[in-house]
Design a protein around this nucleic acid. Structure first.
Length: 919
DNA sequence: CTTCTGCATGGCCCG
DNA sequence: GGGCCATGCAGAAGG
């Protein structure tokens, strides 16, 4: 757009129409307060004329007077978003208060403004140019800025139409946001906002844009439609009032022209009722919100249903140059529409306006042809709804699927003349993936999701303004634009896409991205439906940030500054924190068979793994430079300490473990139910045995977030049940419990032997260069290196086992405590139960593995012990024990469950009994 | 058990 | 405040 300081004639070289030539210029329209734009009727070039005098003083009855030229032009109502209409003979009329004021002078030279052209003059010219009698009544849309006084030309791009402009504040988003291909516009707007200088530099291009838009504009004019030139310059809503030029000469021949001018449409033209695609020059791509052309009730058709369809698309739909496509309406598919019900709810007004009248709820079959020429037959019917009707198209599922439409996509209905055939087109919301569930929520007014989504992105992320250039350079159809953009966005911000899947198995565990695309539509649709979908993200989305709950647990850690208080409830230790957990960095823990525990964490910068003390707490972001514990590797330039093979083994084990853990977590809840109770029973025995087998005194009880050396009240208290029953006690409870324990352990050994080979092999692999290393890699939160709850939950934590082997009594005490992870999702019963089971049973089994030898020996079952030892003969004896324990721990929940189920079958005295037993 | 059908409900938009 | 419409839901029908 030109920005000449003196617009005397159209600056388009091929046009040159004088601004004062009658009919050569369209009326101006307010861009924002104080800005005014005109458009050459001949070539479509747009020019902005900004007021010269920005300062007004209010004058009595509300009319304002330009302090510069003293012309009274504005009603004070402008402040309250009133509309001004231009009067035929000059002057304006406030449509709000009906006060009129005549422009007393249209002499632009009255006040030199430096631009050489008075806006008043311009207005006068504009008015004269449109001096037909309809002006006064048909230009109420004309919303002027504050002053039409001074004049200046300014690049439209500078005129970021901010929402504070009262003129169009009322406009709803549906009217504002362009449906497609206007992303660039939105981004432009931001771009413009960010850099006026750039905008200035872009003037020539902009001008070309407008020139390019000429055809479109003309075609629109031909349709004699209310329209506004919207975002052609990248400004999504640069014209608050929007020009509604219904005075355009009746040179049109479009069928749409038949429609009466619907004044009710005028006050609220879509902000971007007309928009231009990013690719300059592709006029046919300009997406126009075409007001209803004809039909019953067309005057009531909400702008959201105005078909925004490009001429090109019309041509595509038509396929026949001899046919005329009359866009009727469009609708953004809701979740229900796109769902498998196969019912497409039709806007009542549209249905009644453009579809055959139906009197019976059964309706009638409607043949609609799609853009491919395929003809579909839908049942057009209605339901009584309150005292109204609700129109639906039934049987649309095949068509929807054929078009691969999702919620958020748009279907357009057109009529092909002269046949009168209904044609159904569609427009994809390229980001329908991201928006599939939230379209109605994100765009309550029915703006296609893509626009809303992207506009949100663009508006909120200035950096994205760079996309404006990208978009501008894009060629081809707008969907392609969006797709490309969508891809770009997705690739650039993969984590932004929040998908949901109903089953945990659907989640990708190795990354944050979930393959929601693989989730059947049906499943996804089932997740749609809550009223809360109107929220951009529903609760399920929020819970599925690409993390399983277990994974989230891994990342959670107590706030570093808080100390827990331990509360024991029914023998379960709860660690209470006053602060919610925070996210920490994952790390892997290793326990060497020769002793020593290691924690490994990966640098966020160089991705090298660094060894850390086991008890350090890492922040969510951690890099080599933060490695204060190893000065030789406190820089990313320092080499890896782990050989690739070691690292590989480590990670593989870690991965395997996680897999097993997850699998275990999905064991039927039923199998978990008794675990806690059985654990108590087992604990009784273990406590007895342990008491005999060791005299080591150490911390006794571990609890969530337990750490080595923890001296909390839980850790220093004596083992639960200690001293209440002697090892030799032959009471019924003790005998039963012992019997049960024996059975459980034998089953355990049996299962273990089945996995022995595999586990041993794995252990050998882990040994590797550090062959003495007996590793159970464990994805574990660094901040909770020795957290028993986590350890137990992971059940393979060798660190825990090691600790237990060294502190038998400690384990015995542990056995009496079920550890509850307070971080477990309370609503996920399954997980919660699983977690609980893992915790309690695993801990018990871990403990059990050591006293088992003692127990078995005492009960003449040494062979089992030997078998166990031999099975892990590649590691030292003690390690072998631990290994056995580890192996067991590899499948903690299931092991425990099986044991319990078995134990309950015949020997179990009953959970209640065990639990209630004073043991 | 799933799908279909015919509403009913209620949030939200518009006048 | 009225009406629209997205969606829920119960009953029916079908596999």
């Amino acid at each position: 757009m030109a920005s000449s300081s003196s617009i005397k004639s159209c600056m388009n070289a091929t046009c040159g129409v004088s601004t004062s030539s009658s009919g050569g210029w369209r009326k101006g329209w307010a861009l924002r307060s104080g800005d005014f734009a005109i458009l050459c009727d001949n070539c479509g070039s747009a020019y902005e004329q900004s007021i010269f005098c920005e300062v007004f003083h209010s004058k009595d009855s509300g009319w304002r007077e330009c302090t510069s030229c003293s012309k009274r032009l504005h009603c004070g109502c402008i402040a309250s978003k009133s509309l001004l209409e231009l009067l035929d003979g000059g002057g304006v009329n406030c449509t709000s208060c009906s006060r009129s004021a005549r422009v007393t002078s249209v002499n632009g030279d009255e006040k030199p403004n430096g631009f050489g052209m008075s806006k008043v003059e311009n207005v006068g010219e504009l008015q004269s140019a449109s001096a037909d009698n309809q002006l006064a009544t048909e230009t109420k849309l004309m919303q002027l800025g504050n002053c039409i006084d001074g004049i200046g030309t300014r690049n439209l791009l500078q005129l970021q139409s901010d929402e504070t402009n009262g003129s169009y504040r009322k406009m709803k988003q549906e009217d504002i946001l362009p449906p497609l291909g206007e992303i660039a516009c939105t981004s432009f707007s931001n771009f413009n906002q960010a850099s006026n200088a750039s905008c200035q530099a872009a003037k020539p291009e902009i001008h070309r844009s407008f020139a390019a838009a000429k055809d479109l504009y003309e075609s629109l004019a031909q349709t004699n439609l209310s329209m506004s030139l919207g975002s052609s310059l990248g400004n999504p809503n640069p014209f608050p009032g929007g020009v509604v030029d219904e005075r355009v000469p009746s040179k049109a021949s479009s069928p749409l022209q038949q429609g009466p001018r619907s004044r009710h449409l005028l006050p609220k033209p879509p902000k971007s009722a007309l928009s231009m695609d990013a690719n300059v020059g592709m006029v046919s791509q300009i997406r126009v919100a075409r007001p209803p052309a004809e039909g019953r009730g067309r005057n009531q058709l909400l702008p959201r249903y105005w078909p925004r369809i490009t001429d090109q698309e019309l041509q595509q739909i038509s396929g026949d140059p001899n046919s005329t496509i009359v866009p009727l309406f469009e609708k953004v598919l809701s979740a229900s529409d796109a769902g498998r019900i196969g019912r497409l709810v039709l806007p009542k007004a549209c249905a009644e306006a453009y579809f055959p009248p139906i009197s019976q709820p059964e309706g009638l079959p409607l043949r609609i042809q799609d853009v491919k020429g395929k003809e579909w037959v839908f049942q057009f019917r209605f339901w009584p709804n309150n005292n109204s009707r609700m129109y639906v198209l039934e049987g649309v599922t095949p068509c929807i699927q054929s078009m691969k439409l999702q919620a958020g996509d748009t279907v357009t209905f057109s009529r092909m003349d002269p046949e009168g055939k209904l044609v159904m087109g569609f427009r994809k919301a390229s980001n329908s993936i991201a928006m599939q569930d939230t379209q109605p929520a994100a765009i309550p007014n029915g703006v296609p999701s893509s626009e809303s989504y992207f506009s949100g992105v663009f508006e909120n992320l200035p950096i994205i303004s760079g996309y404006s250039g990208l978009l501008q350079s894009l060629k081809g159809n707008t969907d392609t634009h969006l797709s490309a953009l969508s891809k770009h966005l997705h690739s650039a911000s993969g984590d932004m896409s929040w998908h949901k899947s109903e089953k945990q198995e659907d989640r990708t565990r190795d990354g944050l991205l979930l393959p929601s695309l693989l989730v059947p539509e049906r499943k996804r649709m089932r997740n749609i439906g809550s009223k809360s979908k109107r929220l951009l993200i529903d609760s399920l989305d929020a819970l599925e940030l690409k993390l399983t709950w277990e994974e989230a647990q891994d990342l959670l850690r107590p706030a570093p500054s808080v100390k827990p208080s331990i509360v024991t409830i029914e023998d379960h230790d709860f660690e209470e924190y006053e602060e919610p957990p925070v996210f920490g960095k994952r790390s892997i823990f290793i326990v060497r068979s020769i002793g020593g525990q290691e924690q490994w964490a990966q640098c966020d910068s160089c991705s090298k793994w660094r060894r850390l003390p086991v008890d350090v707490l890492l922040p969510p972001k951690w890099m080599c430079v933060d490695n204060v514990w190893d000065q030789s590797r406190c820089s990313c330039s320092a080499p890896d300490e782990l050989a690739p093979r070691e690292l590989e083994n480590l990670l593989r084990l870690n991965k395997d473990f996680k897999k097993r853990r997850i699998t275990n977590s999905h064991q039927p809840a039923q199998e978990h139910e008794s675990s806690g109770l059985d654990a108590l029973a087992n604990a009784a025995i273990l406590g007895d045995v342990g008491e005999q087998s060791t005299t080591i005194v150490a911390t006794t009880t571990k609890h969530p977030r337990h750490r080595p050396g923890c001296s909390c009240i839980v850790c220093i208290q004596p083992p639960s049940g200690k001293g209440k029953h002697k090892p030799t006690c032959t009471c019924n409870v003790c005998m039963t419990v012992k019997r049960r324990f024996k059975t459980l352990m034998m089953r355990k050994k049996k299962r273990q032997s089945e996995r022995e080979a595999e586990i041993a092999q794995r252990t050998q692999q882990m040994a590797g260069p550090k062959d003495e290393a007996e590793v159970e890699s464990n994805s574990k939160l660094a901040s909770t290196p020795v957290d028993p709850s986590d350890n137990e939950a992971r059940s393979g934590n060798e660190l825990e086992s090691k600790s237990q082997s060294n502190n038998l009594s400690n384990k015995l005490a542990d056995s009496g405590k079920g550890h509850l992870d307070l971080n477990c999702h309370p609503d996920r019963e399954e997980d919660s139960q699983a977690g609980l089971t893992r915790i309690s049973m695993t801990s018990l089994l871990q403990v059990a593995s050591l006293p088992l030898d003692t127990y078995l020996k005492r009960n003449g079952l040494a062979s089992l012990s030997e078998q166990q030892a031999s099975s892990a003969s590649n590691v030292p004896a003690q390690t072998g024990e631990n290994e056995a324990k580890i192996n067991e721990d590899c499948k903690p929940a299931s092991a425990g469950q099986e044991q319990e189920s078995g134990g309950e079958e015949n020997e179990e005295p009953g959970p209640e009994q065990s639990q209630n037993d004073p043991v």
